[in-house]
Design a protein around this nucleic acid. Structure first.
Lengths: 225, 225, 225, 225
DNA sequence: TATGAATGAGGCTTCATTCAT
DNA sequence: AATGAATGAAGCCTCATTCAT
């Protein structure tokens, strides 16, 4: 009742005295700025201009530009890893589970381009900030563990090629899904944008799934004892 | 501090009066700087400090920092595309040719990490500078055309799956080869560096080739009429 | 981060509701900060971080940083002048009293380096804050008055040179005792630290006493009528 | 002829392209600012406003504020030590030479208050910048060496007390001469300004000389064998 | 052609202080 | 009486770029 509903109105300062909301606001705005311009290209003033609070708060809560960047990176990972939890594969036959996983990853990365831009920027910085994070490493085990279980099921069922490595399989799926987004601009500029239309992406998605399936699937030779 | 008067007899002051040599020197040094730090992270002063000539020459020959960056980008593409010409596939059976092509691309990208960093940086900049180049687009057709011919051969020989799209196949091969280098730092930080040791890379290389082959190869069902 | 609820039973929140104790705590902490860093070099945040109470209290009790500085200065003078009261010279022969006074002053200043740093800082500020104090001027008469009496005794006893000026004599004693502490760092850096070891200080102390005595003592020529 | 005579006219930029002149100008202006306000109290913008060149040059030539401060400190020492060379004592009898030296030092420090303010500021900083200087230590030996020679002469002539230590004697002379300037403001505020009028200073000067002489002079007891 | 000197504009960050509860 | 949150003003410094010779 007392608090104004219009959060975007800077003069209605109902969001004040709510540190978590202020920090979230800063991170949200900063993520766009960093994702678009990189660490050195980002401008603190531009971030401040888009925030509900004053520039000073960036330093109050994050210390400096790099501190803010580090937090944005953690936030980006947390959000994307959170989204991955939605996927459940346990009640599907192994090959269908693989197909679903690849399709889901492909879509998930497409839907989070800013996350992938942060990842690219981190690679420019040799993953220095990621390595310093204490929480990001904890988020990463799930994907590979899920694949580990799935491979075990597929091998037990006799539908998977033997000797599959979960980490390398994860690498392959990531390669396709990341490259599709992270390198879209240069690939498009070099070879045309056909692959990046709705139709082109649908075809690519099908093909990527098919490629992984073709690799994972047990070849005929292995079938007979 | 003081420049030696007699670096070696042949080149002593010989690079002066030779604009092309001066430009090449600048570009070579600038490529390292841009590849390591990105466009906004690169420092004109650092480039100048590593050069044989003075900072003023950068502006004399390239106008400004962005002009230099654009030239470096073109140089990077030219060098890598030049290297790709060494590969000849025509005298190999189609499947072996594919295997060789994938392996070569994987290796070639590994051997040119600075080129891939420039590509990532271009993606951060939405490929704006690449798009403005007049020479880069001309260099790119070869790869896809070569695949086109190869696919035709493979289909004619009855060893390739039907309906393969050369552009999408190029995309897949690129995805693996680019991701391997461009995302090595974050992937390594997230999942360990096992895949990036000499042994890990060899296994990955084999697997990548096998994956593409598994996809390209005509499946058993298609064999019988 | 979180303050313990039970620091120790007696003082638990006991200093609250006790404005004088809070002010003393602030002044004590602030004196260290000002003495170490000067007025402009001191940081309100650092003072606050070392206090038992919050930063807001500084402004509540002292108005602003300069107000706090002024109070710290007064406190520093009060403490040192208080210490000087311990010295009684009345029951000693005049020359011995001088020797004791010089030695005491030398020691007293050595034992209160923060006071002397405040004095130096005040000199940097042209003694502006000292001049505005209402209580400091009242504390200073004692030293000169004591010397006045002592000189009278010494002259009456015929052991002192005639025409001694108490203010100038106080100035001489101060010069030695203050310089010894206030300029120890630069003197040591320029000429080595030999004079500032325990042994060096002892020798210096003896010499300083001897110098003042040599000056104060009635020369032989004056002895005979 | 071609160069404008009016160096103060900013629009006549004849001083340009003369790095040494520019650096000297900056140092001269900066010394006033640092001497008046200390290191943290000094404002780069204020220095810039008083200079003939732009603020940017401070960073071009001195790196940062601390770098400039360090250079100013060296300049202050160099200038004062240079001035001390003017004094020659060799053709005077030892006691007269001491009197002249003390009087000269007293005057010299009075005439260079900004130097002494720099020294005080250095003491606030624990002589950190002085210690890092590579040239200041080399300037300091002269004063003590001169005293060493003088003491040797005085002892040989039988007019000096035996066992005089040159370093400690230098310390005494410095104590008086430095204190007189460095602590003038607080001493004046505490005890009145009588000692700092022309007349007061003359009396003080005489007394300081007399005090040192009284100490140095061989006492009567020592005269007879 | 070539260079060391010079710079305006704008970047990041810190500071003492006040606000809202 | 007390506090954590918040801030405007101003500080130091860096950058790509141009000038003067």
């Amino acid at each position: 009742m007392a608090k104004p509903l219009n959060e975007n109105d800077k003069s209605r300062q109902g969001w004040k005295q709510n540190p978590e909301a202020v920090k979230r606001d800063i991170i949200r705005v900063a993520m766009t700025e960093f994702a678009q311009n990189g660490l050195s290209g980002a401008r603190v003033d531009r971030i401040a201009a888009s925030m509900k609070t004053s520039k000073r708060m960036i330093y109050y809560y994050f210390g400096d530009k790099e501190g803010l960047y580090a937090q944005v990176l953690e936030y980006a990972y947390a959000k994307v890893r959170e989204g991955e939890k939605k996927l459940s594969l346990d009640d599907l036959p192994p090959l269908e589970a693989i197909a679903k996983l690849v399709g889901f990853t492909f879509d998930h990365h497409r839907n989070n381009p800013d996350f992938l831009r942060m990842v690219m920027i981190e690679n420019i910085h040799h993953a220095d900030y990621l390595r310093r994070s204490e929480i990001i490493p904890k988020m990463n085990s799930a994907a590979v563990e899920r694949l580990e279980k799935l491979i075990a099921r597929g091998e037990a069922d006799g539908v998977f090629r033997s000797g599959l490595d979960p980490l390398r399989l994860h690498w392959q799926i990531s390669a396709f899904s990341v490259f599709n987004v992270a390198n879209a601009d240069t690939f498009g500029a070099n070879f045309g944008s056909a692959l990046f239309t709705a139709k082109g992406q649908a075809a690519l998605r099908r093909e990527v799934i098919e490629t992984i399936l073709a690799y994972v699937r047990k070849p005929r030779e292995e079938e007979t004892p």
